[in-house]
Every structure is written in structure tokens, then in C-alpha cells.
Design a protein around this nucleic acid. Structure first.
Lengths: 297, 297
DNA sequence: TCGTAGCCATAAGTAAAACTGATGGGTGAT
DNA sequence: ATCACCCATCAGTTTTACTTATGGCTACGA
């Protein structure tokens, strides 16, 4: 019982060829080796598997029984190996990416499109959530990659800078303010502010900046979507604090306008995080290459 | 690609144990060996199968994919080995026996009954046919064992003598003949003879005997079943040539009576034939043992 | 009829693994 | 901090798988 698995491969070949010599040629082994393998297999199974004929060998009924099992088993193993190969060559597989809605829409979309066009066999799963939530998902293995604004405390993530985001204050072009004046943070704080809610990392970042300047932040309106910030600012309800890169289209079309700021608000890094580069799936690795490659051009 | 099959067994154990050390203990190998096996497997498949954790290892998604295949494959192999073991222990399997109707009824039946009682898991197939036909079936592998009257030309069968059959001439007790007289073949030939048809080996044997004595055989009635020989003789239609052993019950009950013969008609051997003893299935071997053992007592 | 060519089995020697034992690094638990 | 447990690595040895060579056998063709 419990034969050497390696011998099953030989067994199958012999059964299919109907000849020990032929199997040996197919396996690039000596006839002797195959003969010994079969004998050893027969001994360990305690039964004759082939009847030796002058013109080759043929399966006994025990051999036939065994072959029915073994050929299926080897088929399964081959299929498994093939699937791994396909996965490695991105013919199949899956990649799950965590990012917040805004990043997905304004930054990730073209990459997703391009990736899908190049590797249509790979299923893409997007998990939306705040930066914090997305990093949690990365830690628990729910996503392969996560886009987030760089966390201060150096998590043991593998981080790859992608691009910078700039904080900007915008208002409707006819809003009652001086677009030529450089406002201080304190002055900005006096406007009716339209902000993202407290779960958003950009909101928390802003509060940090204000706190550092000895100010507190009292928003007029709190929203959960970056889209809405602009929509509300546009109809003149106040000054919205947005991520400039993601408001570009609104700014260019002139539906909102940027206020100048006296203090420089440092840019924030958006990074692509992985748990560990080494254990990334081929699909995830390739995705990261595409994103990073695009940034470095 | 095409990893060493042996390593799959190790892989499975590690996957199930979630630990290289634990797998090593289970497989009675050193931790080092298992570690190397896994590494080698990973290399030959070109992918990471486990993520190494401080408290053991866990499958990567590739590893999980592979495991799904491998565990099923190993299960199949195990099932195959188990079936062979069962067959060897006669828990399952099949045996096919060739014999003519008469032999089956008068000789084989008790063996079949006993065999089936001892090994109810083994299916028994009986193929009826003349001795000649049955030996053909043996040659082409349609039956494992065949009962036949010993063929003159030494086929390359493996033959085991079972018992002797004696040719006897019988008639109804009130038939118009002298039961005390020893008839010569020639005299017997003048009776209206009731014989089996020409395909039966006992008929051919009888013709040989007559031919050897320079006589020809002209049967009054030809039948295809030994049963009918007696039935017809019993109602006084003539003298039937039967196999004595198979007419015993009729003789003992006195419904037919045996004529004495002047010449001795040599007994004929019934033999149990196999293609080759070596390649007999366990089920067939056991059956032969039972039959031969019973004869030798 | 007799080689002859093909098949398989066996033996002995060699090349190639598989495996061990020791060692070191790393991470949680006590 | 120390210990206990895990995995990786290295070097050395045992084990095995494999090869070459040989012999027996059977069927086939000259």
C-alpha cells in the first residue's frame, strides 16, 4: 500500500503504450528502469498489474481498475499545474484592489481599463472604503493592493508612492470672496465650509493642519462624497475643501474657482500598498508595475 | 512544470497541518526534508504555495488552487489502492466461469453456493457453452476459468484435473434388452440410440470410440440436453448414451437402468482450465482452490 | 528451419536524489 | 528578556533511482 507516487506516472505511460519499452522511450528512461518501476509498484500493491505478452504488456483486470483511478488522478494534477501556469501568465486569476471612490474614479479608472484590456482573463474586484478601512482590508488579506494616502505611522506595508494630492479651497466663481487675495487658514475657517465627513482621511488631515495652527474646524456642511462637495460649492453655499487633482475638471470648466491660500498646505502622498511584495500574486504584481511605471514616465 | 509527484503528498500534508514541522512529524520525516520539498515544489511550479507565518504556514491563493486539485487526486489514488486491496481480500471483484449446462448443474452448483456464501462481495458470472466454446472464451479472456473435458491436443492451458466421467448406456428398466449381458460396441450400435448432438464433446468422444472399433454411429434421436436423454430413454424410445455421474440420481431411483458393456470405455477427465495460473485474479484463484481442495479430500 | 529482432527480467555499478542533523534567524508567549 | 516554536539553509551521508550489460523468451521473416 501507499506506493511511490512517481511510479504511477510510469504505470500510466506503460498502460497507455501497452509496452514497457515504448513507455521507456516516451519517458526518456531506460527500459530497465521502467521494468523495475512496474515490478516495484506491483509488489507494493500486492497484485499483478500487467500480463506480460511476447509483443508487449496488457493490463490485468486489477491493472485496469487501477488505471481508471490513476489516469483521472494524474489528469487532475496536470489540470492543477496548468491552472497555476495560466495564473502566472495572467490568463486567469483574480486581483482585488482597495481604494476610495474618489481615487477610483479620478485616478484608477484608466489603469483598470488598460489592465483589463491587456489581461481580460483576470477578474478585477474593487473594494471601496476609506483609506483606513482599505488598509485594514489589506492587513486581513481581503485585498491584494490598497491605494491610500500615506499613513504617518509606518505600517509594515510595502508602499509605493503614486502621486501627490493637494488640498484646495474652492467656491463658485460668483461667490462673495476675493479670488485674488491669499487667505490665511484662520480666514478660511470663517467661511461657511463644506467638508467631507470625519471618516475621510483628507478631512482628518485638514483638521490636523488647523490644529497645528491653533485653530478649530467648524464645518457648515458635511458630506460623504467628494462629488457633492463641488456640487454644493457650485451653487454658492460656501467654500469647499477639495483635493485639487480631483476637482480639475470643475476648475477648468470654470464652474468652481480656487481661492489662493497664504500658508502652504503640504501635499499628501497617495501610495499603493501591498502586504509584502514577495507574496503578491502575479496578477497583483503586474498591476502594480503598470501603475508605478505610468508614474515614473 | 511536472513536479515530482512524491512532493504532492508532502504538500498536502503541510496544507492540512498548516505547519511544516507538524507535517514532518506526521510523515516521519525531518522538518528539513519537508521544508526542502516544499521549496522544490514551489520552484518547479514557479509560484509561492505557502506564506510563511511565525506560527506555521498558510496557503497562498495559488496554493489553495493547487490544493483543491491535489487533494482530490490523492484521494483518487487512495481509493484505487483501496479497491485493489479489497479485491485481493475478495471483498469485491468478479469471477467468470465457463462450463456446460450439465457440469454446472451436477457438479459446479455446490461450489458456486459455497463460494458465494464465503465471499458474497464477489460477483459470479457463469458462461454456458460446449467444452470447445468455453475454452475459446478462456483463450480470449472472456472467462477466468473454464471447466471442460480434457482436450487431447495439449493446449497451453493450465489444467487441473477435477474428476472422471464415465460413459454409460442406459435404458428404461422394462426395455427390450438383456441387462445381464455385456454388449459389445457393435451390438450397442444396433439399438435405437439416443445421443447428444454433434457439438457435444461427449458425443464426439463416443464417435471416436466407435470409429476406433471400425464402426459408425447412427443415432435414432439427437438431443441438445443431457436431461432429455434420460427423459427419452425412460419412456422406452431407445438406449441413451449418458455420462454416468450425471445420471446417478436416475439410476438410483430406478427409472433407468444401465447396460453392461463388453469393451471398457475409458473414463474422461474433466479439468479446470485457466489461461495461466500466475495471472489469475485472487477471486479466481480462490475458486480454483475450493474446487481442487474438495477433489483431493 | 533457423536466425533475428523485439520484448521483458535481472544483476551490478554508478549517478543522483532525498533525507538527516546541526545551525541560525525570527516571532510570540511566559 | 528568555524561552519555545517555527522555518530556512548548509554540508554530509544514506538511500534510491537509473544505466549499462546480459540473458531468456516469442514471433516473424528469410
Amino acid at each position: 500500500m501507499n506506493a511511490k507516487l512517481e511510479q504511477y506516472r510510469v504505470f500510466c505511460s506503460v498502460a497507455e503504450q501497452g509496452s514497457i519499452s515504448a513507455a521507456a522511450r516516451q519517458l526518456y528512461l531506460s527500459q530497465s528502469a521502467v521494468s523495475q518501476d512496474i515490478r516495484s509498484l506491483e509488489e507494493s500493491l500486492g497484485t499483478r498489474l500487467f500480463t506480460r505478452m511476447p509483443r508487449g504488456v496488457s493490463l490485468t483486470s486489477d491493472g485496469q481498475t487501477l488505471y481508471d483511478y490513476v489516469s483521472r488522478a494524474l489528469g487532475l494534477l496536470e489540470a492543477g499545474e496548468k491552472q497555476l501556469a495560466d495564473t502566472r501568465e495572467l490568463m486567469t486569476g483574480e486581483i482585488s484592489i482597495g481604494a476610495n471612490d474618489t481615487l477610483t474614479k479620478y485616478y484608477l479608472l484608466p489603469f483598470l481599463q488598460r489592465y483589463h484590456r491587456e489581461y481580460p482573463g483576470v477578474r478585477i474586484r474593487i473594494c471601496n472604503g476609506t483609506s483606513r478601512r482599505v488598509l485594514e482590508m489589506l492587513e486581513t488579506g481581503q485585498v491584494d493592493l490598497a491605494f491610500a494616502t500615506a499613513p504617518e505611522e509606518g505600517h509594515n506595508f510595502d508602499m509605493q508612492p503614486c502621486f501627490e494630492t493637494h488640498t484646495a479651497f474652492v467656491a463658485a466663481p460668483d461667490y462673495d470672496c476675493d479670488f485674488d487675495k491669499a487667505y490665511s487658514l484662520e480666514e478660511l475657517g470663517r467661511f461657511p465650509l463644506i467638508l467631507l465627513d470625519r471618516t475621510a482621511s483628507s478631512r482628518r488631515y485638514l483638521e490636523q493642519r488647523f490644529l497645528a495652527a491653533g485653530l478649530t474646524l467648524k464645518p457648515e456642511i458635511e458630506l460623504s462624497s467628494h462629488n457633492l462637495l463641488i456640487a454644493i460649492a457650485r451653487i454658492g453655499l460656501g467654500v469647499a475643501c477639495v483635493t485639487e487633482e480631483m476637482a480639475l475638471s470643475g476648475l477648468q470648466r470654470g464652474i468652481i474657482r480656487k481661492l489662493r491660500t497664504a500658508e502652504d498646505i503640504p501635499a499628501r502622498q497617495v501610495v499603493l500598498c501591498a502586504l509584502r511584495s514577495a507574496s503578491l500574486s502575479a496578477a497583483a504584481q503586474r498591476f502594480r508595475e503598470i501603475v508605478v511605471g505610468a508614474e515614473q514616465v
